[in-house]
Design a protein around this nucleic acid. Structure first.
Length: 278
DNA sequence: CCTGCTACCTGATGGC
DNA sequence: TGCCATCAGGTAGCAG
């Protein structure tokens, strides 16, 4: 379920653990998460290689190898776990311990496990960043300095999409998911149903400010406490406290006291206060 | 090219 | 208690 702030926190925390390490062995236990790539391809492109950098674009996490890269996407339930050794991993993932690991990267020191009981998350390998199709289709990263108020206005004012669907579209702006799109629209006091091209400069400026502040605040929460990759329960503790509308259907708006509603847009739940979001 | 719909998966939850 | 329908913080692939 991670959006940009969660993945960014993972990238920053993982970086010192992984950079400079060599992938001694890559093992795919559930090939469904690497589809359509085969376990053999994963091994071939990653085994024996040094991890030179760890970075994020949108909600994707990348391990940059000496040659090529590993791409991970967590979708709803994917997570990473860190084990001190292969022995610890086996103990924790035995049928009794019950941890469900899909892909294992055994390093020269430590073991990284990709887990996803629902198998919607993905792990892929590429010979170069240019081969990674999802990466090249992403829009401007939501926390990139190049996403200025002007850049957002140019994009949004040329889109007929409802604001909520615009924000969820990774080809427009990358990294925002259902939670933080609801939060940003609430903070900007904008009705999620309005179309992008109906915003004037003042309104898109408010939305820009709201996006940046919501994501930065969430990132701070995600970094303190930082993920420790020790168990499947670490990922969503912090940010829940900062939510202003998400999942508050029927409760009163923290700004105007109006009734928070849940509406459906593009098949997803949108939470909003139609009294003060205009 | 864009847009809208569906498939992909499994586990948790709530109504009856 | 059991059963079934619904829902979940996302994206790719397809048809039109």
């Amino acid at each position: 379920m991670p959006e940009l702030p969660e993945v960014e926190a993972v990238a920053r925390t993982l970086r010192p653990l992984l950079c400079g390490r060599r992938i001694r062995c890559a093992e795919v236990l559930h090939p469904i998460v690497t589809r359509p790539q085969t376990p053999a391809l994963i091994r071939e492109l990653s085994q024996g290689q040094c991890i030179e950098a760890v970075w994020r674009r949108g909600k994707y996490l990348f391990l940059e190898l000496k040659r090529g890269l590993v791409e991970m996407h967590f979708r709803f339930d994917g997570q990473l776990l860190w084990f001190a050794s292969a022995r610890e991993l086996r103990a924790r993932t035995s049928s009794a311990a019950g941890l469900h690991v899909d892909v294992i990267f055994e390093l020269d020191s430590g073991v990284l496990g990709f887990i996803d009981p629902r198998h919607l998350g993905r792990v892929h390998v590429w010979e170069s960043a240019g081969d990674c199709a999802p990466l090249s289709s992403l829009g401007i990263d939501a926390l990139s300095r190049t996403l200025t108020a002007e850049a957002l206005h140019a994009q949004i004012s040329s889109s007929k999409l409802p604001l909520k669907e615009f924000l969820l579209n990774q080809k427009k702006i990358a990294g925002i998911g259902n939670i933080y799109s609801c939060e940003a629209l609430w903070q900007a006091r904008l009705d999620p149903r309005r179309s992008g091209n109906s915003l004037d400069h003042k309104e898109s400026g408010r939305l820009h400010k709201a996006i940046v502040s919501v994501l930065k605040r969430a990132l701070e929460c995600c970094l303190d406490p930082a993920p420790d990759f020790s168990g499947p329960q670490w990922w969503f503790q912090g940010p829940e406290e900062i939510l202003r509308v998400y999942q508050r259907e029927g409760l009163s708006c923290r700004r105007c006291g109006g009734n928070i509603r849940r509406i459906v847009q593009g098949g997803r739940s949108t939470y909003c206060c139609l009294n003060c979001q205009k």
